[in-house]
Simulated scan of single mutants.
Amino acid sequence: MPLSSNVSAGGAVQGEKCIVNDQMGPFTVLYILIFIISLPGSLLSVWAFIRSPRSKQQQSTSVYLVNLLVADLLLLLALPFKIMKDLGAAPWSLMVFHCQASAVTIYISLYASIAFLALIITDRYLQDCNTLRSLRLQEVGFAQLLSLVIWLLLLLIMVPNMALPIKQVQEQQYLSCSSLKEDISLHWHALTVFLCTALFLNASAAVLVSSGLALKRLLGSRSDPKHWVDARRVAGSVAAVALAYILCFVPYHVVRTPYTLAQTKVITDCQTKRQLFLGKESTLLLSALHLCFDPLLFFYLYTPFRQTVRNMFPCSRNQTVSDTEEQAGEEMQQATFLQ
């Protein structure tokens, strides 16, 4: 049946239907800006990783960085569908496709990025921790296996959201993806959210522990100038990645659980649902900002990548020698760990 023309004072309720996504204009503009800014950096990253010279002793960090880049590319592929839906410029079939496929792809990318950023932070600390306990974690084969497990786990959790049945609903201007879901699909969606939140909490624990240990080592090495320089370098890189992690992903998870309660009809007040939706969209936008930061991480954390980018600019080629020496030192240190 067509919706009633009765509209509440807040402009959110038509008939018995609560409209939560009728204020997407500002979000769409910001998503377009993120897409425009991050696309060149991501394409440059792909080119640089392909052209980067293969080091004799590959490090586990490079494995996690490549997987983080794959997650970024997935998000870049899915963002145009979200932008078109939020603009209201997409045909009905494309809006349904976004709800079934590209929206799920956004969340696969989001949680893959969370997992690999946490692994990068942990790995950066372990590179400076010369103990037997860290050896297994820094083997390239183990890093590749762990990356494969993460992708398979995320697909196992997320793909059913694409495959479970959806309702046939009347075409409408403001489509809420949860309105397409059958009861079983809503229950699986709620389970997905809580499983992914558990993944986020475990990743956050690894970030906090690694950051705390790096800071502890930095403070403990103040009396030794040589160790102080190494500890400061590692602590600086760990702190930079941890800060980006916190800014991008923590606010989203503060809002995610209560918003899921609104999607599953536990929370029914329309004004509360609207506020939770706007909070979810604001923090999801913040999460997408990591697309702009990740090329900087690739540049500063992976020496062959940095060499390749610098070789593109004549004024920076004089840095190549020092980068080569830095890479040789990292390879020697890695070889020492593995002996």
Score class of each variant (00 low, 15 high):
192 T>E: 11
264 T>Y: 11
199 L>E: 01
254 V>Q: 13
239 A>S: 13
221 S>A: 13
233 R>F: 07
261 L>I: 14
226 K>A: 08
250 V>L: 11
224 D>R: 14
195 L>I: 04
254 V>H: 12
257 T>K: 10
251 P>D: 12
187 H>E: 13
193 V>G: 07
225 P>S: 09
188 W>T: 08
196 C>I: 05
202 N>Q: 09
186 L>F: 07
261 L>Y: 14
189 H>L: 04
184 I>H: 06
268 T>S: 14
245 Y>C: 05
242 A>R: 00
222 R>C: 04
194 F>T: 06
207 V>C: 00
244 A>R: 01
232 R>N: 06
208 L>M: 07
226 K>E: 13
189 H>W: 10
207 V>H: 00
257 T>P: 15
252 Y>F: 11
260 T>K: 03
203 A>V: 05
242 A>W: 01
251 P>C: 11
212 G>N: 09
261 L>R: 09
185 S>T: 12
220 G>R: 12
195 L>C: 06
250 V>I: 13
248 C>T: 06
188 W>P: 02
183 D>M: 05
182 E>M: 03
258 P>I: 05
215 L>N: 00
217 R>H: 00
242 A>M: 07
223 S>V: 15
185 S>H: 12
212 G>M: 04
254 V>I: 09
260 T>Q: 13
242 A>Q: 00
186 L>T: 03
203 A>T: 00
211 S>K: 01
188 W>E: 06
181 K>W: 08
223 S>C: 09
202 N>A: 08
203 A>R: 00
213 L>Y: 05
225 P>K: 12
240 A>H: 02
198 A>D: 11
259 Y>K: 07
248 C>I: 04
247 L>F: 09
225 P>Y: 06
185 S>A: 12
189 H>K: 11
191 L>I: 06
214 A>R: 01
230 D>C: 07
191 L>N: 05
197 T>R: 09
240 A>P: 00
223 S>E: 12
209 V>A: 08
206 A>L: 11
256 R>N: 10
264 T>L: 07
254 V>L: 08
245 Y>V: 03
268 T>Q: 13
245 Y>Q: 04
233 R>Q: 12
208 L>G: 01
215 L>S: 04
211 S>W: 04
247 L>S: 09
259 Y>W: 14
199 L>T: 05
255 V>H: 06
267 I>P: 11
207 V>Q: 00
218 L>A: 03
210 S>A: 07
182 E>T: 14
237 S>C: 11
236 G>R: 05
246 I>K: 02
201 L>Q: 00
182 E>Y: 01
245 Y>F: 15
181 K>L: 05
251 P>K: 04
267 I>G: 07
258 P>W: 05
231 A>N: 14
235 A>C: 14
